[in-house]
């Protein structure tokens, strides 16, 4: 019994020191100069702009990657117009963004679409900026978050099998109706879970966005790159204020994640 107590105590201690204390330290840091320091850090025009940029990117990326993620999962599990071999190869490639360092993800986009590349120069002449502008930042985040929804939805599709869908199809339902009436209710909570993970990753994306955006104040700066810049400028209270907003959002998303996990297990 005492050994049991010891292990439980040790684990609780590790969690407290490693996870809870750092989180509390951010809260304390944000209020080092009292409420006014925190509100000053948040209400700076560059902080407002950075949070807005993060919000725009999160919304665009989540919508696009959810739609394409669900469709690609359906194709990878169900489609018979894709060969078995090709499916296996694509399945392995889907995971690649998880293996790629975010900085490398950003570098890829700069290399392909930057002002020095053929495509980038062409678009530049047409007046479209991709790198060091919002489209490049969205592209970088799309790349980084691409596998998340697919990895949540595919196992569920594989598990439930295609019998119900085939039955609906045989009874004359359109593909569209089959999807909404049969497939969607089965995968709904996995999609929700994937969406939450995607949003969390979008809010937190740093390396890829830093490389692609150039981190220009009031133009391409996001919340995380603003935190980075504040730390580089030794303005820790301001950095903490923005970091606290991000951390609060993450903890909130974590709570929703736990809730949707319990829903996912219900059906």
């Amino acid at each position: 019994m005492t050994i049991r107590r010891f292990w439980i105590g040790l684990t609780t201690l590790i969690f407290a020191v490693l996870l809870i204390v750092p989180l509390l330290r951010i809260v304390q840091g944000a209020f080092d100069d009292g409420w006014s320091g925190f509100s000053a850090g948040i209400s700076r025009p560059e902080a407002q702009h950075a949070l807005l940029m993060t919000g725009i990117i999160a919304v665009c990326v989540t919508v696009v990657n959810t739609v394409f993620g669900v469709m690609l999962s359906l194709y990878l599990v169900r489609a018979n117009w894709l060969g078995k071999r090709l499916k296996a190869v694509m399945n392995a490639i889907v995971d690649l963004p998880f293996a790629v360092s975010p900085v490398i993800g950003g570098l890829m986009i700069v290399l392909l679409l930057g002002p020095d590349s053929a495509v980038g120069a062409m678009l530049g002449r047409a007046g479209v900026d991709i790198v060091y502008a919002l489209p490049g930042m969205i592209l970088a985040t799309l790349f980084v978050t691409f596998p998340i929804v697919i990895r949540e939805v595919m196992p569920v599709l594989q598990e439930v099998g295609s019998q119900q869908e085939e039955a609906a199809h045989m009874m004359g339902a359109y593909a569209w109706t089959t999807f909404w009436r049969v497939t969607w209710p089965l995968i709904r909570w996995s999609v929700v879970y994937g969406v939450i993970l995607t949003v969390a990753r979008c809010l937190g994306e740093f390396g890829a966005v830093l490389v692609v955006s150039g981190n220009i104040i009031n133009k391409t700066q996001t919340a995380t790159t603003l935190v980075y810049q504040d730390v580089e400028n030794f303005d820790l209270t301001a950095a903490n204020s923005v970091a606290l907003v991000l951390a609060a959002a993450s903890v909130l998303l974590l709570l929703v994640m736990e809730w949707s996990k319990s829903r996912k297990e219900v059906h």
Partner: peptide, 16 residues
Amino acid sequence: LPFALPTAVIGLMILL
């Protein structure tokens, strides 16, 4: 939690 928190925020925590 470490998956949910932005990495820049994690860096700042450890810095503090």
